[in-house]
Structures are given as structure tokens and as C-alpha cells.
Design a protein around this nucleic acid. Structure first.
Lengths: 334, 334
DNA sequence: TTGAAAGCGTTACCAC
DNA sequence: GTGGTAACGCTTTCAA
């Protein structure tokens, strides 16, 4: 028995036209009750499924959402990064519930309009961008004439794009204040501050430090985002310092874990000698040793918002951005 | 300025035919050097990208691989599960390197031929199935006439499907022997043994226990795979036991972490009173408290194999299955 | 209620 | 080296 190749073959077996098959299978349009029943039964029996590529071409819809992770030139991140994984997992659950597939693309931004080209390819009905990385420009350019896109990341006044993300400035302040309350006086921020989200976190922390009178500005320990690279960065930087900070504000939970590793290898006690706070609120943080104090961005509800806003935009509405309130979770590293 | 809608419009702007544009853009076929240069420049300038849906229909290729997670009826897993996330992250990295997109589908198996229908839709060039769940039958059915599929999971003699996965029976033995060496005499296995991978792990552990003369058979503490459900299962089961086991072989790392939580809440010391070993070798395991002893399946190299075998099968070759050697990683819970 | 036929945007065959 | 055109498999308008 050879497989059915297309509607035409299948329609012949059913003894009706392709039009009738299409109407019966899609449930739209009027078809005789018994005709429909016969067609559905036969489709079930033969395992016939209409070709979605052809359907998508005809209907100009794909029921697929692109999730893209712009991997900035030197952050060194992979899709296997715990933050992306956690986020895409939540997104996949949310999209699946709404009947959408999720197309995961690791795009290496090249050329000015890589994003425009991606949506121009017609593979997806909309796009969720995870993190602006260093591509805020390309994102804004596209947002001006392409509506079905939402971005996880930093919200900026006057932006055209629709974003979801925590109030990074407030989150940064929260983190710094907490460490200062615990007695820290020599704070440092770890992360790539040239990326909008991290820049805002640093700015917030810096402001809190200045307001508290513990510093004129907040020292930055530059670091990649990829765990091993971050570990290497920090091992080198920390050893080179004349005096160790007594409080480390990590730009992300992953960075914080790398910092913890580096400190442990140096024989530095946490939180005894150095207190550490992360940012993200990844589930893993609760299980590590010692459990990670962090600023929770509420990723699961964030993912829900991303999906909801995107589907509204696909439907032609134009909802605004959502700002998530960052929350301090005090655990063992502070 | 309005966007270009199709080749025809673009070709007119270029002053050539659609055929020439197609040849120039795809790099295939002979085109005059200067003509090609002009077309490429204009495409770049206008951000024109051919519609991939139409291209896919015409070429009968999508450059997309489906990753599907059959969520068995009562395992309660989500795509946000750490095991899936870790695996899909590695797969995404591997596929991206080869120029393939990754279509993530959480399919809820319904009807006998859900898998057949998925591949019949033509959305993907091949499929990677993560875990047989309780769908080994459907998978075998499809494997008999559909080549471009590889499965992560248990390898069974005489199977038609191409699998990648650790030698679960050997891994189970490894786990049991380790706990027995550490002095455990009352062993129990935690997990859904009706799923092939877990059944094999249990069988291996059971055989080791019998050979060592510590038991006639290995007690099973049934549990879901989803962390919270597993935690609830174990809290209830362990409290109901007349005597606590002194060695717990968890079917997965996630299950092990749930067990650790349940034990901690009961005030049971690990590894003092109960020793625990996981299965998978997820990166998180190293960071939790105490660090998790586990059987490593080498997921990253597993993912590489999955991608490599699938691409070979898409290319028409028919490579066989790969069996990964499980490795004991001794850390703090045993 | 059903069928015929146009068309979605591309590629690839075949002339020129 | 370049252009015309059929075909990929489906949905949907229009007629019957």
C-alpha cells in the first residue's frame, strides 16, 4: 500500500472533489453530514493529513511563531543556556496551548536587515525576540513597520517595539540596597553593561549605591554571558583586584553561578567574605549550594505575557508593553 | 515605500525575469556575473527575501527538523522540564550549525497515527523524538515506512526505529552496585517503570541487587516525572512505608531532586540515613545541595549523535542506532 | 450541497 | 546567459 500524496488522490478514493474534502477536513463550509463523516473516517483510516506547507501558502498563515535569540557578537551564548531554555520551555507550553508551533532559530545577526529578512521569509505569523542583545537598532527598525513582534528585554521611552520584561533599573536598585543593608560597602557589578537590560540593571544598582553614600559609582567587572567564559573572566578579574569587593551584583543568575564557582576555587567564603546576588529567578537557583539570592523576573508569567501580546498583535490589535515588577528573593548567598 | 511582495515585483525592479532572480539568489544555475551582482545588491538594499513557504512547496524541502516530545497520558511533563530543555538546547545548537531550523512541538498523542500525521503534514524534513514515553508502538509503526526519524530513548532488539540513548540496563546496574558498595541493603527504585527507558533502568538495578544477594527483587516507588507531582507522590509513599529504604535509585535527575526535597522535609539526612542516586547527568546536578550522584548519559554528545544520524537519514543513508555508555558520577548524595 | 478552476510565490525545465 | 511557463498541494470563490 502506497501513501496518499495529496488531496486529489484522497478525494478520488472518497469519491468526491478536492473542494469537498478540504471543507470536510477543515470543518469550515457546508458539507453534507454523511459525506463529512465518510471523509473523516477514511482520513483516519489512511492517516491522511493535508500538506501544511501548501495550506500555509494558500491561506497566508502558518500557525507558527518564531522564537529568535539574537546572539550578539561577543556574548558567547548558546541556545543551551539555562536562561533561554527556561524561557523557551515556558513559551513552548504557552504557544502549544493556543495551537501554535514554535520555530526556534538561533540567528547570527549579519547584515543590517537580518530580522526583516527572517519575517519576510513568511515562515512564521509572528516573532518573539528573546533579549535585545546588541541588536536594539535592528529590532526598532523592524518594529516600525512590522506589528506582530514582541521582545523580551529592556523597555525604553519612545520605543516602537512591544516589550515584556522586568523593570531592570528598579531591580538593580533592589539588589544593591539589599547588599548594602547586609553591610556591603565595596560593591561590584558583573556583566556586559553594553546590552540594554544589563546596562539598566547596572544603572539602577549604581544609583542605589550613590544614594546610600557607599560609592561614587558602581565598579563594573565585565563578563561574557556564557557560563564557562564568565567563569574565566571572573577568575582573572577577581585575582587581579587589589582588594576583593564584599558584594557582587551579578547581571544574571548564570553569571552569579559562575561567580560562585570562581570564588569557591579561590577559597573565598560566600556569604562570609563576599555576598552575591543574581538576577532572573531561574528555578535552578533554589537548588544550588548555597541557594542563590536573586531578583526574580517571574519568567513564567513573563512568557505568558509574551504569548498573549503576540497573539493579540497577530490578530491585528496593538497592545502596549508590559513591565514586570522585580522581586527580591533572599536565600543563602547574601 | 511599500514592501516587495514577491519575485515578480522584485524581478521587474531588477529588469530581469523571475527565473533569473531565483537563480541569482539561490546561487544555483548560471547567471551573468554582473547581473547577479546587481540583483544581490538590490535584494540587500530592499531587504527582499524569497518566501520560504512557496519555496518549500516547490522544492519539497523545508530545512526544518521537528523535535517532538510525546507527552504520555499521565507523566504530567511539560516542555519546561529541565531534561527536555537541556536536550532541546543542545539540539538547537547542533541543528543551527547545520543550517536547520528547529520546530518544537508538544504533541499530545491522540488517535493511532498522530505521528504519521505529523510527518505527513510536510512541515519538516525529519523528526527527532525525545523519549518513547508510552508511544513505542506508534513510533515503531512509523519507523517501518518513514526513514528520517531518530529517537532518543531505549534501544530494543529487533526494532525498526533508529535510537540514541544510554544502555539503560547497564546504567541501572551501575547505580545499584554503587549504592550497595556504599552499604545500602534496602534499595528502592523511583519512577514510571512502564516507560521503556525506566523499565530497563529498573531491570538493571534489580538484577544487580539480586546478584549481590541484597534482595529478591527491587521495590518500585511509582512516580510521575513532573517535579511537583513526583514530590507529592514520594512524600505520600515514603511516609506510608513501614521502614524507609536506605538507598534510592531515581529514574531521572529531576525525580532525584524531588526525592531530595521530600526527604529534607521529612527531616531525613542525605546521605546519612538515605543515599540517593539520579540518572541523566544534567548540568544542574553538580550545583544542587548536596551535589547529586548520578548516572551520566552524556546528553551533549547524545544530541550530537541525534543530529548527525538524522541528517544522514535525510540524505538517504540508513545508519544504525547508537548506544551511549553510561558513566557513574559520584558526588555528595551517596 | 457539491464541483471546476483560479491562484498563493517559488523553482526548474525547456526553449531561445 | 536569460525568459516563459508548468507544477508543487492546497483553499476558496463562483456556478451549478
Amino acid at each position: 500500500m502506497s501513501r496518499i500524496r495529496n488531496v486529489k488522490e484522497f478525494a478520488e478514493l472518497c469519491g468526491v472533489s478536492t473542494a469537498t474534502v478540504s471543507r470536510a477536513l477543515s470543518g469550515t463550509g457546508r458539507v453534507g453530514a454523511d459525506t463529512r463523516k465518510r471523509i473523516l473516517a477514511l482520513a483516519d483510516k489512511l492517516g491522511y493529513e493535508p500538506n501544511h506547507v501548501a495550506r500555509n501558502l494558500r491561506t497566508q498563515k502558518t500557525m507558527t511563531v518564531g522564537v529568535i535569540v539574537p546572539l550578539g557578537h561577543d556574548t558567547g551564548q548558546h541556545l543551551s543556556d539555562p536562561f533561554f531554555n527556561t524561557m523557551t520551555g515556558f513559551l513552548a507550553d504557552g504557544l502549544a496551548e493556543q495551537g501554535y508551533d514554535l520555530l526556534l532559530s538561533r540567528v547570527i545577526p549579519r547584515g543590517p536587515d537580518w530580522l526583516q529578512r527572517f519575517v519576510g521569509s513568511g515562515k512564521v505569523d509572528g516573532v518573539i525576540v528573546i533579549g535585545q542583545s546588541d541588536q536594539a537598532g535592528a529590532i526598532e527598525d523592524l518594529a516600525r513597520h512590522y506589528a506582530p513582534m514582541v521582545v523580551w528585554g529592556q523597555q525604553t521611552p519612545g520605543q516602537s517595539s512591544c516589550t515584556v520584561g522586568s523593570d531592570n533599573h528598579a531591580g538593580g536598585m533592589l539588589a544593591a540596597r539589599h547588599l548594602i543593608e547586609r553591610g556591603c560597602r565595596r560593591l561590584a557589578f558583573v556583566g556586559p553593561v553594553n546590552i540594554p537590560e544589563f546596562g539598566a540593571r547596572h544603572a539602577g544598582a549604581s544609583q542605589a549605591a550613590i544614594e546610600a553614600g557607599v560609592a561614587d559609582s558602581l565598579v563594573v567587572l565585565p563578563s561574557h554571558l556564557e557560563p564557562d567564559a564568565a567563569h574565566a573572566d571572573l577568575s582573572a578579574t577577581l585575582r587581579g583586584l587589589p582588594e576583593l569587593p564584599d558584594g557582587l551584583i551579578a547581571g544574571s543568575d548564570v553569571t552569579a553561578i559562575s561567580a560562585l564557582r570562581a570564588l569557591a576555587e579561590m577559597g573565598v567564603r560566600v556569604p562570609g567574605e563576599v555576598r552575591v546576588i543574581g538576577y532572573d529567578g531561574l528555578p535552578i537557583g533554589a537548588y544550588i549550594d548555597p541557594p542563590l539570592t536573586t531578583i526574580d523576573q517571574q519568567l513564567q508569567s513573563g512568557a505568558r505575557h509574551l504569548v498573549e501580546l503576540l497573539l493579540q498583535r497577530i490578530a491585528g490589535e496593538t497592545p502596549g508593553s508590559v513591565l514586570i515588577e522585580p522581586r527580591l528573593i533572599v536565600r543563602g548567598t547574601s
